[in-house]
């Protein structure tokens, strides 16, 4: 234990935690953005404008968590970063092109000549779909340790579908919170469909999982760790059932419990994420690189950590401030 503290050997673990935290925040925050993008095809303007308006002030900061997470991985674990991004070269590029088009279509969809706006709306939907699918696919590839073969590819594709459904659920839950009237009723309907699409995605990937060698399965049958790993899916299932009945009762008079679906979907995401991370530990690249082996020099990590410590409270502070400014039901965004 003393060795750990003396040589800065604890730093890689702190950074592994920070990276995990950033990635989780990214998945939750950009998850609802991308989800709204996925749902945007189901309605026409002006409802669609209202939907985009509900995420307009936030998406940019949300995406920054991805930059931070991948950036910290790059900085703290350059070797792991090289392996992961090397293995995922093409899906990463596909995601990036998706992110490019998603990001700019926010602006272009309202800033080009009227006859071209519908085209950018389509770009907005398609790019959200591409980003969600490629992210899910990449997490799938990561889970199977980049094994070749069609079963692991199939697993990754199912996982991509799971993430699309999950983001759709987050998006719908966000809309239940941020909208009212007709759009809110639509959102409830979407959420009910998304949650079962998610269950389907989870079942499909679970069915393929035993055929690819994953650490999750090794661990599930290793007592006593198994208790925790089995508890997580059980709690998730329970939450799914609660969500199903809750959605049946929404929207309620006085807009009661409108925030609950979002809270529950965040909880499901967090549980799934923690379960995954737990099954990887102590590896940073499943099956090949351990956290302690892959870290950068301690003095550089220390410099970043100090900066993070100073900046973090401010970061959280103005993030909360921005959410407070745009709290309540979303309105159409206007510059003036």
């Amino acid at each position: 234990m003393n060795d750990l503290i003396q040589d800065g050997a604890w730093l890689p673990f702190v950074f592994a935690f920070l990276i995990g935290f950033s990635m989780l925040l990214y998945a939750v925050l950009d998850g609802y953005d991308l989800g709204v993008g996925l749902l945007s095809r189901f309605v026409e303007r002006p409802n669609r404008d209202r939907m985009v308006g509900s995420i307009g002030p936030f998406w940019d900061a949300n995406e920054t968590w991805l930059v931070l997470g991948v950036g910290l991985l790059l900085v703290a674990f350059p070797e792991a970063h090289g392996v992961v991004l090397g293995e995922l070269y093409l899906p990463v590029a596909i995601m990036l092109v998706g992110l490019i088009f998603r990001g700019v279509s926010f602006d272009f969809r309202k800033k080009v000549a009227p006859e071209k706006q519908e085209g950018w709306d389509r770009v907005f939907f398609l790019s959200s779909l591409v980003v969600a699918l490629s992210q899910g696919y990449m997490v799938g590839r990561f889970i199977v340790g980049f094994q070749p073969g069609w079963v692991s590819e199939l697993f990754s594709i199912f996982f991509g579908f799971l993430v699309v459904a999950g983001y759709g659920l987050m998006g719908a839950a966000w809309l239940i919170l941020k909208t009212e009237g007709e759009l809110q009723r639509f959102a409830v309907k979407w959420a009910r469909r998304a949650i079962w699409a998610m269950v389907l995605g989870a079942v499909l990937s679970s069915l393929t999982a035993p055929f690819v060698h994953t650490r999750i399965y090794d661990r599930m049958f290793a007592f006593p760790e198994a208790t925790l790993l089995i508890a997580m899916p059980l709690v998730s299932m329970l939450l799914t059932v609660i969500m199903h009945f809750l959605l049946g009762a929404l929207p309620m008079p006085g807009d009661r419990l409108a925030a609950m679906p979002f809270a529950i979907s965040v909880a499901i995401f967090v549980l799934g994420f923690v379960g995954l991370v737990y099954s990887f530990y102590p590896y940073i690249v499943p099956g090949s690189l351990r956290i302690v082996d892959a870290a950068a020099a301690p003095e550089s990590l220390m410099v970043i950590l100090i900066g993070t410590g100073i900046v973090f409270p401010f970061l959280i502070g103005y993030t909360i401030f921005a959410y407070r400014v745009f709290r309540g039901k979303a309105t159409d965004l206007s510059y003036d």
């Binding site: 307009g56 002030p57 936030f58 940019d60 900061a61 995406e63 920054t64 930059v67 931070l68 950036g71 910290l72 790059l74 900085v75 703290a76 350059p78 950068a296 550089s300 410099v303 970043i304 900066g307 993070t308 900046v311 973090f312 970061l315 103005y318 993030t319 401030f321 921005a322 400014v325 745009f326």
Partner: peptide, 20 residues
């Protein structure tokens, strides 16, 4: 690494949050 990290930490989030 640290210089890039400082850019993200000090500038990116600030810009992105205040831009809205």
């Amino acid at each position: 690494g640290p210089l890039l990290a400082y850019e993200v930490l000090t500038a990116f989030f600030l810009e992105a949050s205040m831009l809205g």
